[in-house]
């Protein structure tokens, strides 16, 4: 099992470090060849509009969409979550997403950097110190989506099948439990 980290732009290095801390070597994915070598993909935070453009110019967008449809496990954090959502509110009009998880997210809904915060959040995977950076908000959760974690009674960690998404940054709090959880989804899928 090879885990890839989408490395077009954003906090990919922090995710790779986090995976390394639990003994998982990851591959940085910037090209179709690199994508074909991985069996799971992590989509980091960063700027979703920048990543959208680079997904197009690198030829990765359609390939990733196909892989997700085929069941490849994906984990999107912050901007990565926006890329996975079925509906983006307040995004750029030309911004595309993979529609891989039935949620509506509002870009930068928690405000500008001055409002960025960290807080403890409760989840069925464990309690986390969640770091929220100009974070998106999950405003609607579809029927097939499981809410795994919340903050102030709002969903911040959700899952639908092999798709996991968080509005916060587990890679910034020296805590790899969510990465372990994602790797376990990937490993279980392998056995099927």
């Amino acid at each position: 099992m090879q885990v890839g980290v989408l490395a077009l732009q954003g906090a990919f290095a922090a995710h790779s470090d986090c995976l390394a801390s639990i003994g998982v070597q990851s591959v940085e994915v910037r090209t179709p060849e690199q994508l074909s070598s991985v069996s799971a993909l992590l989509m980091p935070g960063g700027e979703s509009s920048t990543m959208s453009q680079l997904l197009e110019s690198s030829g990765l967008f359609d390939l990733i969409a196909t892989r997700i449809a085929d069941g490849m496990p994906v984990f999107g954090t912050c901007a990565g979550m926006i890329l996975l959502a079925s509906e983006i509110l307040d995004g750029r009009s030309d911004q595309r997403s993979f529609s891989a998880i039935d949620i509506s997210v509002r870009r930068n809904a928690f405000g500008r950097q001055v409002d960025s915060f960290e807080a403890s959040i409760n989840s069925s995977v464990g309690d986390f110190q969640g770091v929220f950076i100009r974070a998106p908000r999950i405003e609607r959760v579809g029927d097939g989506v499981e809410v795994l974690g919340s903050f102030n009674n709002e969903p911040v960690l959700v899952r639908q099948g092999n798709v996991l998404a968080a509005s916060f940054h587990p890679e910034l709090s020296n805590d790899a439990r969510l990465h372990e959880y994602f790797v376990s989804i990937t490993a279980n899928r392998k056995k099927v």
Binding site: G10, A11, G45, G46, T50, E118, V131
Partner: peptide, 12 residues
């Protein structure tokens, strides 16, 4: 939170 935003800008 401060260094976190710097992380988000990487590769850009």
């Amino acid at each position: 939170v401060k260094r976190g935003l710097a992380e988000m800008l990487k590769g850009g």
